[in-house]
């Protein structure tokens, strides 16, 4: 299963947060954004438990992430 994590960051931490996110093997995509959110990360996991593990033990510990908003992907369409 895939999920999208939208993050709001503190000041001057973007590079640090990106580097720490890139070290997590389940993260497949990281992008910096301009808009309400500062960062978008895509994560691929096997189960909700694994998603919880990564959140609780890795993403939640990254300093600089003020808040995050996670969405599970149910289906994708492309052309």
């Amino acid at each position: 299963m895939r999920a999208i994590i939208l993050c709001k960051l503190g000041i001057s931490v973007i590079n640090k947060v990106i580097n720490e996110l890139k070290e997590i093997p389940h993260i497949t995509k990281v992008m910096s954004l301009t808009g309400d959110y500062d960062l978008l990360a895509e994560i691929e996991v096997e189960s909700p438990e694994e998603l919880y593990e990564i959140f609780a033990n890795k993403i939640d510990l990254i300093e600089g992430i003020i808040s995050s908003n996670t969405h599970l992907i149910m289906k994708a369409w492309e052309k």
Partner: peptide, 15 residues
């Protein structure tokens, strides 16, 4: 999806 410029669409659970 047929609109010009749209490449992919994800259906999400969340906000």
């Amino acid at each position: 999806l047929k609109f010009y410029g749209i490449k992919e669409i994800y259906s999400l659970i969340g906000e």
